[in-house]
Amino acid sequence: MRTTVKDIMTTAVVAVEEMTPFKDIVDVMHRLHVSAVPVLNRTGGVRGVVSKSDLLLKEAAPDAGEEFHLSPGRRREQHKAVGTVAADLMSAPAVTVPATATVEQAAQAMCRHRIGRLPVVDPDSGRLIGIVGRADVLAVYRRPDADIRADVVNQVITHAFAMDPARFEVAVRDGRVTVKGTVEKRSQTPLLIHAVRHVEGVVSVQDDLAYEIDDDDHVPFQQYY
């Protein structure tokens, strides 16, 4: 079973309203030790997210209001630097994930949008039900090595590839997997390694796989794995 966002999210989520003043947001962040708060509109929909970086723009440029900028990016920053309520300070539209998304999808959204926290919404109603941070996502790497090994042997080798697990030697140390053994066809090697990499908690994969039949007689390019 793959972990979904629902399993790792924090449900005690603090949100602010569009008209919450700057200092109240700082106080909430300090008191509750959070680095970003979702901004809700009156109907409970997520309008945006205020993070510490949004607030820090004011400290970085206290007299931003005195400047004139042409580039839209600078103007957006300027708008935030002079803002006094959540609606002016937030990054909008909010990047949210549905509770049913996988941890991998959440990590992808964080990397792509370069943000550290994602509000989690109910897939049906769209209402805020939690928040997920980078640290929550990284928790998948705390999985015990034995669990990872069991997943590789049972789910990948036996189940997904329908191979005999006795023909393989799987070792896991600190999340680093080494697979030794013999596959039937050479073309199966990259597919198998690809599947092992996607097992939760795997840091890296090293393979020492032999094959019985070379069915890959025209490899057009170096395989990048």
Binding site: V103, E104, A107, Q108, M110, C111, R112, R114, G116, R134, A135, V137, L138, V140, Y141, H194, R197, H198, V202, V203, Y225
Partner: peptide, 12 residues
């Protein structure tokens, strides 16, 4: 954490 997150975002 953002450096580490790349791995989970794209294991392959």
């Amino acid at each position: 954490t953002s450096d580490l997150l790349c791995k989970e975002a794209d294991p392959a």
